[in-house]
Write a protein that binds this DNA or RNA. Structure first.
Length: 505
DNA sequence: AGTGCCGGGTA
DNA sequence: TACCCGGCACT
């Protein structure tokens, strides 16, 4: 068990402070390259783990735990060093929070930092209010507690079929044996698809019609505490663990850019008539629909999954926001306003992973709310782009009367009930077009946008055809629709003998 | 032959 | 950038 603990709490790669080799008192930083355990004595304070630390000057030195701890302690007293660490995870847990700032630099794994520090705390901290006794007890009973919590979580949540990693996260102390596979690390987050890998907990909802998003949602950080009855042992470390999750998502410098590499943030838009509420979590939107629209006061337990049909996933293009592409969104309301067919949420949501959202209060986490999360703050709802996986989704807006602006207005004319007929094809408008210029003039602008959107976000069937030359469109183009005599009604591209922008295929 | 549209030219 | 057109690919 002790070996396991060491592995679990591996700090390999973490930056630590160690006593100066020159003895001048100035601590030096280094990166832990290896950990050797020279004494398996499990009695508290008796272990001798030797850390091989790659020093700044490139040399490798070995330090005992105490030495490193002393370095940490020492560092804590040093203003400059302390300040250099100010970016360390601040996860809200008073205990880890306090030591955290002193010990590890931002580039190190915060989780590992915290864990190491919790170990160190026993040595270096006497003033911090830390549940020492509980902690020790927990260490001794780690396996029992771990097993108990796993069993508890499995037995209490029928929806828990997602990644076991959540269990581990919830357990905080029991990291995976894979060592580096710390569930809290940025790399872990990014590997889960580039999105925030946990979602607002709230309701994990309807057992009867479990859907992918629900199962994903069911594994929420704050759900762990509610598993209840695990006992005081894990309670201590558990809170920090939960906070670590928040902290890692909110405060990590590393993970956020990595997440943004994907540039898309998943949001959930209520499709209910006159609503259009956008929330960052499926659970939140479900609860919103359930309570607001379905009028069900009860929580997720009495849900039948009907909410699933009343919201859809959208993706915020955070890059576009950052890059000033917002102008695109503003210029063409139809791009961001129309929701995809509600029937699609299932396949779409199956791949979703939600943002780090604050558990529980997902309803309050509208992008407008500001202050919910860094990203939500940076991504006003007016700027999101709907990611459409299918052409018909992109064409859906065609049948929607072009409303003036913003997201809400689109949903005004779009209700869940009529969504089932959303297999409309882009060819429809020209086919049914009677010759008046009303529709074309309106659709032209959209057509321009649409072609862009599809070109980027979806892979048209013709992609398999010659790339050099566009395969001839099968649909009627401006020339056919309007005829040569009405050439002035053609889209500009057609007039210029370019690829038709109005009736793209 | 009719059509769609790429590539390039012109103002 | 807007506009135009030769010419090719395709039906």
């Amino acid at each position: 068990m002790h070996t396991r603990r060491l592995v679990k709490r591996s700090i390999l790669g973490s930056r630590v402070y160690a006593p100066s080799p020159t003895g001048d008192g100035a601590p030096v930083t280094g990166v832990v390259q290896a950990v050797k355990q020279e004494n398996r004595d499990v009695h508290a304070g008796a272990r001798h783990s030797v850390y091989t630390v790659l020093m700044q000057d490139g040399s490798l030195k070995e330090f005992s735990e105490e030495e490193i701890a002393a370095g940490i302690n020492h560092t804590a007293a040093k203003g400059p060093l302390k300040s250099s660490l100010k970016q360390s995870s601040c996860n809200g847990a008073p205990e880890s929070h306090m030591v955290d700032g002193f010990s590890l630099s931002p580039e190190a794994s915060d989780t590992r930092s915290v864990s190491l520090l919790e170990q160190k705390r026993k040595v270096v901290s006497s003033s911090i209010d830390v549940p020492h006794a509980r902690r020790s007890e927990e260490e001794v009973d780690m396996d029992k507690v771990t097993a108990a919590m796993v069993l508890t979580s499995l037995s209490t949540s029928p929806l828990v079929r997602s990644p076991p990693v959540r269990v581990n996260e919830g357990l905080s102390g029991s990291w995976k044996d894979s060592g580096s596979a710390c569930p809290f690390t940025p790399s872990s987050n990014s590997s889960s698809g580039g999105y925030w890998s946990w979602s607002a907990p709230s309701d994990h909802s309807n057992p009867s019609t479990p859907s992918p998003p629900l199962s994903a949602d069911s594994f929420k950080p704050f759900r762990v505490p509610s598993m209840g009855g695990v006992g005081p042992g894990p309670a201590g470390p558990e809170d920090p663990s939960l906070d670590e999750q928040d902290g890692s998502s909110l405060l990590f410098d590393e993970p956020i850019p990595r997440k943004r590499k994907n540039s898309m943030k998943v949001m959930f838009k209520c499709l209910w008539k006159n609503c259009g509420k956008v929330l960052s979590t499926a659970a939140g939107i479900q609860r919103h629909i359930r309570t607001i629209h379905l009028g069900r006061s009860c929580d997720s337990d009495c849900s039948d999954g009907e909410e699933d049909f009343y919201y859809s996933e959208i993706k915020l293009n955070t890059d576009s926001v950052a890059d000033g592409l917002s102008s695109l969104s503003h210029a063409s309301p139809t791009v961001h306003s129309p929701p995809p067919p509600p029937a699609s949420p299932h396949p779409l949501l199956s791949q979703l992973s939600e943002c780090h959202g604050a558990p529980g209060s997902s309803d309050a986490k509208e992008p407008h709310a500001g202050g919910a999360t860094p990203l939500s703050r940076s991504a006003p709802s007016a700027l999101y782009l709907i990611h459409t996986d299918h052409a018909y989704q992109a064409t859906a807006p065609v049948s929607i009367p072009s409303s003036s602006n913003s997201t809400g207005s689109a949903s005004t004319s779009f209700t869940p009930t009529n969504s089932s007929s959303f297999s409309i094809s882009w060819q429809s408008p020209p086919v049914t077009f009677t010759g008046t210029a009303v529709s074309p003039s309106k659709s032209q602008g959209f057509g321009d946008q649409r072609s862009q959107t599809i070109g980027v976000l979806s892979s048209p069937p013709r992609a398999t055809a010659a790339l050099s030359r566009k395969v001839r469109g099968e649909g009627k183009k401006c020339r056919k629709v309007y005829g040569m005599e009405n050439r002035d009604m053609w889209c500009t591209a057609c007039r210029w003998k370019k690829a038709c922008q109005r009736f793209t295929d």
